[in-house]
Amino acid sequence: MTADRGSAPAGPPVISVRGLSKSYGDRQVLGDVSFDVPRGRVVGLLGRNGAGKTTLMKSLLGTATVDSGSVEIFGAAPGPGHAQRVGVAMDGIGFYPAATVRRELALWATALGVPKRRIRDVIDLVELTGHERQRCAKLSTGQRQRLRLATALLVPGVELLMLDEPANGLDPDGIRWVRRFIKDMAASGKTVLVSSHQLSEMENTVDDVLLLDKGRLVHTGSLHEFTAGGRFALEDRFFEVVGGIRA
């Protein structure tokens, strides 16, 4: 059953994308993508492998160039200044295997200009207390996901979280923890954009849906609207829109 947190709040969007297009050679990865992400919502970025999700996330971060269109985060083009307002947890952001949890976070704190005392706050926040001296190479999958979240939250003023497959590889306890964590972040006023393949989990987590298929945005709107108030499962609606299971 889907949860309805009501309509999006008024005010300027946190993310605004207009006419975004990107091709690699003759292969179009994104085609004329436009959407807004309102403040204080959990937005699920959904789509098959190759739908363009990773390229879109990188475009939002300013780490991928685009052929046309525009991206604004808090009313401005992506840039270094957003490091104090945007927290990112993606698989592409690796750890130093030999570093301990505390040392890894200390390196990030230095890079972000964050006081070292903040490290204790984020360790407690993601419930890694007691693992500070554990080497990153020895962390479980769930612990690595929590460390990524801790890194994303190091800057105290972060207002937007961008999470790529935060529940990937987790057991049921870990998945439930991530779901609660994301909802708590939104309840505190943060905006969360989360990319995931786990449709059943997204149905229990997100407020809004961005659905990509072959580089095209085929749906944008509330989960409540997309599932007809919960009468249809997100997974069923997903395949109805993008087509049946592909071999």
Rank of each mutant, 00 (worst) to 15 (best):
V101L: 03
A150P: 10
H82P: 04
D164T: 10
L170H: 08
S200E: 10
L160H: 03
R103P: 02
A137N: 01
Q198A: 13
P97V: 05
R144D: 02
R144K: 15
N168P: 02
R118M: 03
A152L: 00
K116A: 13
M162I: 15
N168E: 08
W108M: 11
L170F: 01
G79T: 03
P78G: 12
A150K: 06
E127A: 15
T151N: 12
T110W: 07
I123L: 04
I175L: 13
K183S: 09
V122G: 13
R148P: 05
K138P: 00
V178M: 15
V122Q: 15
D124H: 14
D173P: 04
L163T: 02
A98M: 07
R176F: 15
K138R: 01
G79C: 04
V158E: 03
D124N: 14
G157Q: 05
R176A: 15
L161T: 08
A109K: 14
L112K: 01
Q143D: 09
E104W: 04
R85H: 08
I119Y: 05
P172Q: 05
F95W: 01
L199H: 02
N168V: 03
S200F: 09
L163G: 09
G169E: 01
R180Q: 14
D91F: 10
F181H: 09
G79H: 03
L139N: 02
V155S: 15
E132V: 06
A167R: 15
T110E: 15
K190P: 02
P80Y: 11
E132F: 08
H131L: 11
G142S: 05
T100L: 01
C136F: 06
G94C: 05
V122F: 09
T100Y: 07
R102C: 07
V86Y: 01
A137Q: 13
R133M: 14
A187V: 07
R176K: 10
G113E: 05
K183C: 10
A109D: 04
L170G: 14
P80T: 02
Q145D: 09
L139F: 01
T191M: 08
A137I: 00
T129G: 13
E165Q: 12
G87Q: 06
A150I: 00
V88H: 12
R118V: 11
D184W: 02
E132M: 09
